[in-house]
Design a protein around this nucleic acid. Structure first.
Lengths: 350, 350
DNA sequence: ACGATTTAGTAAATCGATGCAGAGAGAGTG
DNA sequence: CACTCTCTCTGCATCGATTTACTAAATCGT
């Protein structure tokens, strides 16, 4: 391919100035139709690709895209209907404003994280040509957040209620309701299945301190509060946020001597795994063992899962608005959650 | 915010040349550790955001991102596990190479499409700062494809077997197998439910010519061929690619005098709708009415849906490789499909 | 017909960095 | 000591467009 023609070439060929060619593309109303057509014709003739995207971004200081930071490994993220819902909401706004959506995959930030990998991927954030960035499942303190801050990019969180623009839910309050619900049903021995934030070879019990996600900790806290002082809550994990991992974690607790009467999962996907585990033991969710989820993804209804509904798509939309709508200036948006009681929870059978 | 410092400022402050500052960020091995640290320290001190992404892209002629063109309205796309699978595969490759993934929503190209909207959105493609573009569900002839071509960007199709780089399946062959399968079971009156490529108020029969998607046409062709000359195939649609639309279309054909004995859907999601419709009539899929899908999304297994499996995630990976791996030079990749027979198909009951 | 405003188009500066050829300093070699 | 290498670092040109301020010509109102 011969080095492609530039705006200057087109200008020369059409006998006008480069500015005019630029206007032909960007401000059609600023020049006569005749000249404009002559320019565009010449452009086609020369095989001019149209204004270069990078050059344009540089000069005009806008990228026409917003970024979405994801710490979930992308394949995981897309298999989670919750993440997909957020994405859909964000995409909706982006589409309306003719903006692209740049997905930026990021390794998790963790004591164990390989530093090189982290540094390299943070580099991706630095190189991202975007007008703003939203974060999903990026925990507080992730180095990528510093990069964004130092780049001075508009930014919006979807997870944590920390200073800066954010769209959040009342994590503690939401699981508090779950706890109350379970307490009313008489449950006093509850296992909570959480996303460990990393692959684990064997499922097992973990402590509050080893839970990677701030939100998982908050949800555990809410659950405890809701259940009240008399109850016992055991934290377990089977690894990532997947059905398999929920299954593994639930099997782990179900096989223990002191089997809990209810399993509260940190997410619906995990809860589905827990329900499977319950069934595999020949038990019925809601009758023998209660199971609760979090998120209320579409499949939760069909599965009869008691869960916390959060308006996930709306969350995505809000994020989008925060980044793209200049008239939108709220710093903090708290979306409502609602406990949806279905058939997967029931009174304790003594 | 005070106009942010640039590389030149940092250079001046640190008493080195701008090139050296650039090297400090990009080629650490090209300068002494001491100088490098001095530079980075000064940079922090001045609040320098790091090399500007757009400027960098312009000068180095690479964007660090690839684009994915989607004509599905994004919300629809993400609710389709098939699209999600493709995305996951693509993302996998992107993540490995530290590349971002830019989602570019596009309106469908169609006689009815509003020209302004189309032109505007094609503009998004022109402005996309990417190193290559993949297309999903973008039909042949979409103006966005011309833009890509004229931009000289590496490009890969995932849909159509037309010249250029592409990852495809044998659409006709795949539904041919479905047709044969149904023929063997004795079906001679088959309805095919397709994505109309647009919202329709009322479900109804359509002709080959009014089917928007080339692939839908090919699948209909394969089905007809597989069923053989004696069979009758009716094309129907309920609108977009969704469970609801599959339901509506199937209800439409099931209520007709001359009810078909089998419903072949152009996608699993539509097929799920069709199965629902069958059940609503008090009939059993596979016993009273056979239903087939296409794609073999995860849920198909659980639903017992007979369908065509295509390696969707692999499709995404291939697309990614085509765009990102310079050693990968194949122009055309055909992925294998496989008819997966489950319980939703069975012999005709006379 | 006169000054005021609009319209159509231009020149020059600028956006912020990177690639490349090469210069100077010190080290190694015979 | 002269010579060639390395290693660091510099200077300049360049990537490709957009913006701003400005001019010349055309249009307008009275």
């Amino acid at each position: 391919m011969p080095a492609s023609a530039t705006m200057k070439d087109v200008a020369a060929a059409a006998g006008v100035s480069p500015s005019t060619v630029s206007n032909a593309y960007n401000k059609p109303e600023q020049l006569s139709a005749e000249v404009r057509h002559r320019i565009l014709a010449k452009a086609r003739e020369l095989g001019y690709p149209g204004p270069d995207a990078a050059a344009r971004s540089l000069r005009s200081r806008r990228a026409g895209a917003i970024g979405l930071l994801l710490t979930e490994q992308l394949p995981y993220a897309f298999s989670d209907p919750f993440a997909v819902g957020l994405l859909a909401g964000l995409a909706e706004v982006a589409e309306r404003t003719r903006t692209g959506l740049l997905l930026i995959p990021l390794p998790r930030y963790d004591v164990g994280t390989d530093t090189d990998e982290l540094r390299e991927s943070v580099e991706t954030v630095r190189r991202a040509v975007v007008d703003g960035i939203a974060a999903y499942c990026v925990d507080v303190g992730h180095p990528a957040l510093d990069v964004i801050a130092s780049r001075g990019l508009p930014f919006a969180h979807s997870d944590h209620d920390v200073p800066g623009r954010r769209v959040v839910i009342d994590e503690v309050g939401a699981t508090h309701a779950v706890g109350e619900h379970l307490a009313r049903l008489g449950h006093t021995n509850v296992a909570m299945v959480v996303d460990a934030g990393r692959a684990t070879d064997t499922p097992g019990e973990i402590t509050d301190e080893t839970v990677l996600y701030t939100n998982a900790r908050l949800r555990a806290k809410g659950l405890r509060e809701g259940l009240g002082a008399g109850a016992r809550v055991t934290l377990v994990t089977g690894g990532h946020n997947s059905v398999e991992s929920g299954l593994a974690a639930a099997e782990f607790v179900l096989d223990r001597r002191d089997r809990p009467t209810a399993i509260a999962a940190g997410g619906d996907v995990l809860a589905f795994g827990a329900m499977q585990a319950v069934r595999r033991r020949g038990l019925a969710p809601g009758r023998d063992i209660s199971v609760t989820g979090f998120d209320d993804i579409p499949a939760a209804d069909a599965a009869g899962l008691t869960t916390v509904r959060q308006p996930i798509r709306e969350k995505g939309r809000m994020l989008g608005r925060m980044l793209l709508d200049p008239t939108y200036t709220d710093e903090r948006v708290v979306l409502p959650t609602e406990l949806v009681i279905r058939s997967s929870t029931g009174p304790v059978r003594n």
